[in-house]
Design a protein around this nucleic acid. Sequence first.
DNA 1: CCGGTCGATTACAACGTTGCAGCCCCTGGC
DNA 2: GCCAGGGGCTGCAACGTTGTAATCGACCGG
Lengths: 337, 337
Amino acid sequence: MAATLRDVAALAGVSIKTVSNVVHDFQHIRPATRERVRAAIDELGYKPNISARSLRSGRTGVIGLALPELSLSYFAELADAIIQAAERRHLVVLLEQTGGGDRDREIAMLSSPRLQLTDGLIFSPLGLSTEDAALLNVGYPMVLLGERVFGGPVDHVTMHNVEAAKAATMHLISRGRRRIAIIGAHEGEVVGSAVLRVQGYREALAEAGIPFDPALICNVGRWHRVDGAEAMRALIDTGVSFDAVFGLNDTLALGAMRVAQVAGLRVPEDVMFIGFDALDETKYSLPTLSTIDPGRDEIADTAVRLLVQRIEEGVTPRVPEVYLADYTVIDRESTAA
Amino acid sequence: MAATLRDVAALAGVSIKTVSNVVHDFQHIRPATRERVRAAIDELGYKPNISARSLRSGRTGVIGLALPELSLSYFAELADAIIQAAERRHLVVLLEQTGGGDRDREIAMLSSPRLQLTDGLIFSPLGLSTEDAALLNVGYPMVLLGERVFGGPVDHVTMHNVEAAKAATMHLISRGRRRIAIIGAHEGEVVGSAVLRVQGYREALAEAGIPFDPALICNVGRWHRVDGAEAMRALIDTGVSFDAVFGLNDTLALGAMRVAQVAGLRVPEDVMFIGFDALDETKYSLPTLSTIDPGRDEIADTAVRLLVQRIEEGVTPRVPEVYLADYTVIDRESTAA
DNA sequence: CCGGTCGATTACAACGTTGCAGCCCCTGGC
DNA sequence: GCCAGGGGCTGCAACGTTGTAATCGACCGG
């Protein structure tokens, strides 16, 4: 069995509390005592029991991270960044997958007893929408990610979606393109990344005096590679002319770009492509994919920072904070002049 | 504050222990009492405190998963599968990243106090090797993944690496290729996936009577996309002739394939490519990439099953179990006849 | 030389849960 | 009418930790 404070105390000839004090580096301990306790700790290989500590202190040092699915590269890279950010603050991450946009599962997860041993939650929903904002009024610290819910009762870390999408579109326009297709719109939706990015696209067109053509807007179900591929196939089949494609995320853009190339279109000569997310793989596609870097590390770090802040300040109500990360346009081969 | 057993007991007019019994569905409770307690639980929104429960019972319902990095798609997809498998058994997963093959970090992680609130660990090392096997003799249940350590003291879930690599190579040979390059070897290593897969490659060559040419073996540092790309560039620069490439994982193969195409080689006409791992993205690359499906879901499910078994049987020593998942060759455009 | 201060250490209770032992009362058999 | 058996429930202790208050001795200024 694992050694406890009691064992260490007995070996060092001090009280349990003194050992606890040494472990926590409290002051007012004689160097000699400290040394003796340290030696006993090493000898017994003592490790504090986190369950007991957490029972006593109400803290576990664990934060929950709930996101749709790791098999989407964007979320895998986001999880990676968040886990690293958490580690820098000596926190571990408990990871839950809610599936690809299943609203009910997302709601159920918010009150899951599995979150009990968590100090707080970083939540990236895909199925909720703004009218669900009230559901976020849970009894524990939480930080929201993404573009599904705005104005909710919790801190929110997101990005300048409209502006970034506008910048992506303007990048294509600056390269001389005027028939710019969108891959990844969500028909009928009024909330979410798709809506915002399409809005940015329209703003760019308007500013450049290019008429908006609904025939260039390709709707998809989900944002997987296969959806991008199918949308591009459908677009080509309609016979509509286009000279550039804005994939609302990289995965869509990559799927679409592949189909375009198979269909004999040259990239970037015939069609330029730009994506969104700056996934690692966009650096190595053929051609390399221009994209928007949404500031993932900044988002991850800020989310963890805000969550820690919420955890530490206790139940004090406060106006929820909204943080918008900076974006960058990354110009690669798929939009080479 | 969250409701406790005491609160529920007071409201229902029974003892704390009776509430606990209801929660655990113990027998010998009158239906009327059970109902009353149930109602009180609902009214107060009682959720058991997992820290306390775990302090008392020694179980948390959490398993640890330690792997190198989520930004490698293989591990992201593996984590996805393991989290799902764990969920089926009502377990949550605490995820730790050990970095890309950092032996010291991997060793440190094994005794991290962060694992304290974990019932067991699924460990996928990248830096350890067989001589470190003794380090796996930790005091908690553990299941090992991967090909770094064999013959260790713990259950091990892995795959038929040599056979699968041999099958991949024979697939290329059956398509008429004889100058098959390997991308991803690790010079000087004697353990790990690279070694085993190269061995399978050599066995296939030998069986087909094809001489082994060391000039076709490309060493890399890590197994990222950029490493595959650089290795391919180097290979082309040497001027060695080759008509097929076996990427020791999909990421390497995709990186290499891109460089080959940029260099003017046609795939599969001039050079065929096959990878390893059956990542989702191999379905959508240009061309689609042939690969080996290592049975990821089977591996995930087995790992969790074995871990649960170890957890439940307590400290009873037992001969470690080794499970080898089935593989399949997936034939796609990159090796089309 | 005494009261006060401060450094070093300790005793105790409590966090919320569960295992164990035991209590009470009802039922059935003789 | 009494006892055995067992269903239904309760009280107590303990898991390992930490916050609070208390203790004890040494040292200092007056």
